[in-house]
Design a protein around this nucleic acid. Structure first.
Length: 577
DNA sequence: GCCGTTTTCGGCCCGACTGTTTTCAGTCG
């Protein structure tokens, strides 16, 4: 059983327990465990199988959960979950996914009205039965009716890049309001998560009403969901929710810290504050003496952390994974920045499915400040993209040779290929051709539904091929569209380490694989990551920044990313230097 | 259910908003 599967079991247990009204802290223990296991950089199955190690050494895993994990990885089942599933039909859990309906209301609906599905709930609302329940009313009934359709459509988190395209104009618009003195985006956008559920906008203003009125007047606002004295939520035309929060200047840092999250990071932080007799909320850090509270800090984010002798964590690290441990050890990594990138080793031209010519790509790369690039068009297996056979590939390389003679500023153009790993195993181009390349990416494009063992074996073979430099987009996922193929990444990491190969972090905002957790795992194995754009047009060279953000979330430094080096240093690295 | 410890059980982050109440519970982030 994979970590993700174990995590899903624990999440489901938490859902059911919550519905049953179990101790909220017990529910939280399961949710924490789900998250911890999901974020773990190695399989829990490996830890469970290792007699030298204990599952209980994992933070948040005690004797009970360790036992359950062991059962899960051994048998693939959890008796406790099966028992719970017998008590609560799965369709009932869907009730809790309605906005405004939590475990208490869902339980009341189920118990009092016998409602077990969303359709039954709709009928109950239409019959006016819901409003008669204690704690419910007419408005709640309407809100539920309104929320049922939304609950039925799967929650869609939009790509960070798409959120960015909405967020920037929105901020510009809000800044036009004279009452806005300071403005910052917080939330998962600021933490640069690969997808964003909503936008959190934080504003300093002496006139909250003016700011809220200003936002309400925006054409793109479809609906005002809620509005109070300091807080307002609106839904934009595309469905994205924006939460606006107005605070005073002396609370700005505290609010920014608070609304940037993550929730888990904040829980740890507040716990630490409490241990010191302090209290942290969105208004500041306070010293608590009996009933009196003394304001210590709050205007700037760094002051919040400083009161706990903590460094200003980069937002990308605030996930309560390793950051507090790093801080404790004085070993917080200095994260990679976009300017550190020197080369881009994955891009296409119009010889296959790219839009631009070789020359145009080189020119665009130069404008991006890159010092070296690899042209890596598809190999022949990718017929849809008119993939290159040896003859056309060598012709492209001759064109690169001619272009090199024209380049006078030290820009290096490498002869590369994105060579397919065939369904039956083996590379799409013969070794003698690959041997002539400066840089070979190996990719899985076909046979993505094969069983785990088969796909893993194909990739391991590619890693063992002496001409292969790196594995491109190693999991093949397309965010919100296609799941990752089944692959034993631990085995891939081990092989890459053994054979001195690199792994790609594909910067395309739809791919972004390896993901943050995988990047952290690769780093712990000592495997260099190469961040590439996979550009199919000159514009797409700009996606590099998304890849860098993902790398930062994985805790990668300049040193951990291979293409921050010169090409000469990269070559040494590839030779196992 | 975990954790820490004062080793056996109490505490576990904190506040805004809504709708239902008439002082607060539920939900959300």
């Amino acid at each position: 059983m994979t970590n993700v599967q174990v995590a899903e079991v624990f999440d489901l247990v938490a859902d059911i327990l919550e519905f049953q009204g179990a101790n909220p802290f017990r529910v939280r223990a399961y949710r924490n465990a789900a998250r911890t296991v999901r974020d773990l950089s190695e399989p829990v199955a490996a830890i469970a199988a290792d007699s030298e190690r204990k599952l209980t050494d994992i933070e948040g895993i005690g004797d009970d959960l360790a036992e359950k994990i062991a059962t899960l990885v051994e048998t693939g089942k959890l008796p406790m979950l099966e028992k719970l599933q017998g008590e609560v039909p799965e369709s009932v859990l869907a009730l809790m996914r309605i906005e405004g309906v939590g475990p208490k209301k869902a339980a009341a609906l189920h118990k009092e009205l016998g409602v077990a599905t969303l359709d039954e709930l709709r009928k109950a609302c239409q019959a006016g039965k819901v409003r008669e329940l204690k704690g419910f009313g007419e408005k709640t009934e309407q809100a539920i009716l309104h929320g049922i359709d939304a609950a039925k459509s799967i929650e869609v988190r939009i790509l960070w890049a798409d959120a960015d395209a909405i967020a920037q104009p929105l901020c510009n618009y809000l800044r036009q309001c004279k009452a806005v003195k300071r403005l910052e985006l917080a939330g998962s956008y600021r933490r640069a998560r690969e997808t964003i559920g909503d936008l959190d906008v934080l504003v300093v203003s002496p006139h909250a009403d003016e700011v809220m009125d200003h936002l309400a007047r925006l054409d793109d606002v479809q609906e005002v969901i809620a509005r109070g004295g300091t807080k307002m939520s609106v839904k934009l035309q595309g469905g994205l929710q924006v939460d606006l929060r107005v605070v005073e200047a002396q609370a700005f840092g505290a609010a920014l810290q608070y609304f940037t999250g993550s929730k888990e990071h904040n829980v740890v932080l507040r716990g630490m504050a409490k241990d010191r007799g302090l209290k942290i909320n969105e208004y500041g850090v306070f010293r608590v003496r009996g009933k009196k509270e003394e304001y210590l800090a709050g205007a700037e984010e760094k002051d919040i952390y400083a009161t706990l002798d903590l460094p200003l964590f980069p937002p990308e690290l605030r996930e309560a994974r390793r950051e507090f441990q790093w801080a404790d050890e004085g070993d917080l990594p200095k994260l990679i920045e976009l300017d550190d990138i020197r080369g881009d080793l994955h891009m296409h031209t119009n010889q296959t499915d790219g839009k631009a010519t070789l020359k145009e790509m080189v020119e665009a790369a130069r404008k991006c400040g890159l010092r070296y690039i690899a042209i890596t068009d598809h190999s022949r297996r990718v017929s849809m993209a008119r993939g290159l056979d040896p003859k056309r590939l060598r012709a492209q390389w001759r064109a690169i040779d001619r272009l090199r003679d024209e380049l006078d500023d030290g820009m290096i153009v490498l002869k590369g290929i994105e060579c397919d790993i065939l369904e039956k195993g083996g590379m799409d181009l013969p070794d003698d051709v690959l041997a002539e390349a400066d840089w070979v990416l190996a990719s899985v494009h076909y046979g993505q539904k094969q069983p785990r063992e088969q796909i893993t074996e194909r990739i391991l073979q590619a890693i063992e091929n002496p001409h292969v430099s790196a594995i491109a987009h190693p999991t093949g996922r397309l965010i919100n569209r296609r799941p990752a193929y089944e692959v034993d990444l631990e085995a891939v990491f081990a092989a890459a380490k053994k054979h001195g190969k690199l792994l790609e972090l594909n910067a395309n905002p739809l791919r972004l694989d390896l993901n943050d957790v995988h990047c952290a795992a690769a780093k712990s194995h000592g495997i260099p990551i190469v961040i590439n754009t996979d550009a199919h047009s000159t514009d797409q060279l700009g996606v590099m920044r998304y890849g860098v953000l993902q790398a930062r979330r994985g805790g990668l430094t300049k040193k951990d990313v291979a293409n921050t080096r010169t090409w000469a240093a990269m070559k040494t690295l590839l030779k196992g230097g």
